[in-house]
Design a protein around this nucleic acid. Sequence first.
DNA 1: TTAACGTCGTGATTTTTGTAACAACGTTAA
DNA 2: TTAACGTTGTTACAAAAATCACGACGTTAA
Lengths: 216, 216
Amino acid sequence: MKTKANIPEKTIERLLIYRRELLNLKQEMKTAVFSHQIAQLTGATPVQVRRDFMQIGYFGSSVHGYNVDELINSIGEFVDDVQTQNVALVGVGHLGRAILDYLQGRREKLKITALFDVDPTKVGSVLHGIRCYPTEQIPEIITHENIKVAIVAVPESNAQEVAERLVWAGITGIVNYAPIKLNLPPEVYVENRDMVLAVEKVAFYSRRVNKKEELL
Amino acid sequence: MKTKANIPEKTIERLLIYRRELLNLKQEMKTAVFSHQIAQLTGATPVQVRRDFMQIGYFGSSVHGYNVDELINSIGEFVDDVQTQNVALVGVGHLGRAILDYLQGRREKLKITALFDVDPTKVGSVLHGIRCYPTEQIPEIITHENIKVAIVAVPESNAQEVAERLVWAGITGIVNYAPIKLNLPPEVYVENRDMVLAVEKVAFYSRRVNKKEELL
DNA sequence: TTAACGTCGTGATTTTTGTAACAACGTTAA
DNA sequence: TTAACGTTGTTACAAAAATCACGACGTTAA
Ligand SMILES: NC(=O)c1ccc[n+]([C@@H]2O[C@H](COP(=O)([O-])OP(=O)(O)OC[C@H]3O[C@@H](n4cnc5c(N)ncnc54)[C@H](O)[C@@H]3O)[C@@H](O)[C@H]2O)c1
Ligand SMILES: NC(=O)c1ccc[n+]([C@@H]2O[C@H](COP(=O)([O-])OP(=O)(O)OC[C@H]3O[C@@H](n4cnc5c(N)ncnc54)[C@H](O)[C@@H]3O)[C@@H](O)[C@H]2O)c1
């Protein structure tokens, strides 16, 4: 895949958003779509949409626009692995449970295949058909299931330790819901999802709106 | 505040991250800190750190670095409102519960003061001292409590409708956990937090790490 | 006294990201 | 046949963000 070299991160993010909406269009039996429609559905601009598709080497027709099915496949070829990627979820509390309920079955190529927790009442149980293991078994299971991606939903105080164990076991990508910066080797890709920061940011920008209105 | 005009969004995000770590330093009784230490703790570069502080008009000393307390206050003066901002949480399921547990009491200037749900078993109950109201009362409560920020944690199928109701009631900032693009007036600030997209992105970049290792 | 050091603040530069402009090309309708 | 239309692909341009490079300024120690 020659194009794959230097696609901007922002483009990757948008491609995933496009796909989400394209899957909806497919549900609605739509077969073709124009860039300005995708833009409308996703909050991007039409030019941005077209350029993003250009970057992954998918070309539409100036008459019918883009073929929904083909486009979904092209994005998939680009962002997905050939095989399904297995995912581990560590910390099966309220948050972990919500994540599990929500994620499971949403994407063909992503599957949570192992849960980990320390709580003896949770270890050994099976949720959504997935077994919950004690954290001691992280190396064993991660290796055996060839898991590279993990979701960390444990309390702040345990997140660093858990993350290190995961990386040691072979994990190379982490979605981190704990409100700390994980200190890990730079080759591990970490996406942080601290909710407090999100709310703070929205609180900040929501205020500017109010300020603006006052001036009118 | 004259500086407040044109601070980049990325800087705002980093300032909030800096503050999170500075609050930890304060807990540890640290009183001063250098830019390279903050950089280390947050994943930024030292220059970026200094630049960001420059932008909000806080200046350190080249000898002692930055005063932790003062810096926390300066960031606060910049990003926080003078009074506490009240926040509404809509959808008290697994996700909503986790958000509530986690957010409440973490920040002086942000407080969840109202819950909304449609489930009769939840409406009327009190969690963390906060009452859960039926969604019909959104306009009334939002107005009465002067709430401008809301967190949407309802199922996908209801998110758009709920968001519209919130905006109609006066909400100007939303953290959206439903996996859809909310179609709202452009002056409403929306932060989307779709977990599937986060995992997909991490899955993508985690793979590149593996690829790289293969080449060595 | 002065030179070496470490850090800050900031102008200059590079890199990344987004936007505008427009040619190319079917399609439609005069 | 031809002109007008709407959309795509792409080049050129602009804006935003990150990085580099260096002067300024206490502090330390020779
Ligand atoms: N970023 C966010 O959006 C957000 C939102 C809510 C919670 N959180 C964070 O996620 C954490 C989990 O939230 P929650 O509401 O599910 O809390 P919770 O207490 O309901 O769940 C935590 C789970 O982690 C397990 N656990 C504890 N230590 C562990 C370890 N060392 N290894 C494996 N599992 C372990 C516990 O047994 C429990 O099941 C919170 O502490 C908070 O830091 C983040
Ligand atoms: N983005 C993410 O990270 C993420 C993760 C998990 C879930 N989700 C989304 O958030 C939603 C909630 O997740 P959950 O696990 O808490 O689901 P849940 O079913 O446990 O909770 C949903 C809650 O919303 C309430 N609700 C339903 N319709 C409502 C309405 N019109 N107004 C007010 N409340 C209403 C329900 O009564 C329930 O209490 C999911 O459907 C999913 O779309 C997002």
